[in-house]
């Protein structure tokens, strides 16, 4: 049977536009600063938007009304800066009647779920790994091809998703749903080793040491010789992409977010 492939233009719905028509979507897709501005992370946002469109999810983004979550500021110790951001964002959530949020960034997932709640936000927050796992379980994202069946995939647990918030199974379920062969890293799940970006490290030079954290983590990855290294965090993505390049393995190992992996598997 011959397949015809049409290019469909996706219009990502924006909260303000929907509100103008008196509509409140079920979910807010919180894109986060990395997903909005960083070139590599933007690809994750685009892949996730495709999946949301494909699964027919009722959602919107805040667009230009979104502001930084204040996560990096909080971990850096800038509590004023963080709380200014948080309280302003919570006001926006209230204005649009936001109840459920999904985000691709475990840092924002964590801070929205934990610290924003301390400031009175009543939100149901999902990381996109949980969300995608649910959509797969509901049959809204069906992978019928064997496109990735011959691939070996490993997963790097982002600290703020795994050890930080206890989400271990969902990203693995998403990877397994593609039919790929999954291998675990030596240090995984609750004992996963950091990529080196958390706690505002992303925004500063590393202190002097004998090696870089991302390089040490990349060595764990090389040990299991995967075809694809999956992660579920824009910051881990940046650090590990650098690590794979640093070890000159970019020809052998692709670094993908689970949303990108899934969008690839669905040939979206």
């Amino acid at each position: 049977m011959e397949e015809t492939i049409n290019k469909l233009k996706i219009k990502v719905p924006v909260m303000a536009d929907l509100a103008a028509h008196g509509k409140t979507p079920e979910y807010l897709f919180w894109v986060g600063s990395a997903g909005s501005y960083d070139d590599r992370a933007k690809k994750i946002s685009r892949a996730f938007a495709k999946l949301l469109a494909h699964a027919g999810v009722d959602y919107a983004i805040l667009g230009t009304e979104e502001s930084d979550s204040g996560e990096a500021a909080k971990r850096a110790g800038a509590e004023f800066n963080f709380q200014m951001q948080a309280i302003a964002n919570i006001e926006v959530f209230k204005m649009y009647g936001v109840k459920k949020i999904v985000t691709c960034d475990p840092h924002d997932y964590s801070i929205l779920k934990n610290e924003y709640a301390q400031l009175g936000a009543e939100l149901e927050v999902y990381h996109h790994s949980q969300f995608l796992d649910k959509l797969i379980a509901q049959g809204k994202l069906k992978i019928s091809n064997q496109y990735l069946a011959s691939k070996t995939i490993t997963f790097h647990d982002p600290c703020y998703l795994g050890r930080g918030n206890g989400v271990f199974d969902e990203p693995r379920n998403v990877i397994r749903s593609t039919g790929a062969h999954m291998v675990e890293l030596k240090r995984s799940k609750i004992r996963s080793f950091c990529c080196g970006a958390g706690g505002a490290q992303m925004f500063k030079e590393a202190e002097k040491g004998k090696t870089e954290v991302f390089a040490a983590r990349t060595e764990d990855v090389l040990e299991v010789t995967p075809d694809i290294l999956c992660t579920a965090c824009p910051f881990c993505m940046l650090m590990l992409t650098d690590g794979i390049k640093y070890k000159e393995k970019q020809e052998q190992i692709k670094v993908l977010d689970i949303a990108e992996l899934l969008a690839d598997a669905l040939q979206l």
Binding site: K7, L8, K42, A49, K50, A53, G63, T64
Partner: peptide, 16 residues
């Protein structure tokens, strides 16, 4: 103002 620029020119394959 550029926060939502990532949404521009976004296309998806529709497999029929």
């Amino acid at each position: 103002a550029d926060r939502a620029n990532w949404t521009k020119e976004l296309y998806m394959n529709e497999v029929k």
